[in-house]
Amino acid sequence: MATRSPLCPLSPVADLIRIQQQDFDLAREYQALRRDSAAGATADTGIGAIVTFTGLVRDFLNVATEALDTAATLDADAGTGSDRGATSPAPGLYLQHYPGMTERSLTAIVDEARRRWRLNRVRVIHRVGQLAPGDQIVFVGVAAAHRGEAFAACEFIMDYLKIRAMFWKKESGPRGSRWVESRDSDQAAASRWQSDDRD
């Protein structure tokens, strides 16, 4: 990576876009946004703001834990789809993606954020595979000279990730599992940015 002068804080930096099964460490991601790893431990003095977002797996069933205790008495009356009748899976989420295309869709979202705001480093991590309620699922971190850009770009990337990035969630609970339906509220959240002239 090219060495960066503090006088030129917005020289091009490679974005980190990662899809992985394993968990991530918020403190490490924050430090990676703050410091140029290629330049050792030196903090990048061109950065004035870092905004990070972490998404967690919500306990979407709310009563999942209690329901599990009585799962044996529940019959296959829920009609939850193809997995009905299978043994009760652990409550949680299964995350599927399209290797290759998912990375492209995330790169396009980050590129679009870069067109709208002057940004320094951007890191996006999305987990896939089997996750449990409370698990970290997604991380978006944006470093910029000023907080306005960092806040806006972080929210923009998350809003577009929800409607454009190739991931599919399958919920599992005591009554079986089902693919999550897309939500109009996510479309609405992303469409805010279309009417917005922020650049």
């Binding site: 998404g55 399209y98 295309m101 492209r104 990730l161 991931f167 693919w179």
Partner: peptide, 29 residues
């Protein structure tokens, strides 16, 4: 619909060797 990892339409031309994907609306994040 995607053709070779790029979003495509229903009448995007398809050739021998292509990979075509059919996907429901996404639900990540």
């Amino acid at each position: 619909v995607a053709r070779n990892l790029d979003q495509a339409g229903w009448d995007t031309p398809v050739a021998d060797g292509d990979e075509i994907a059919f996907m429901p609306p996404v639900t990540g994040g």
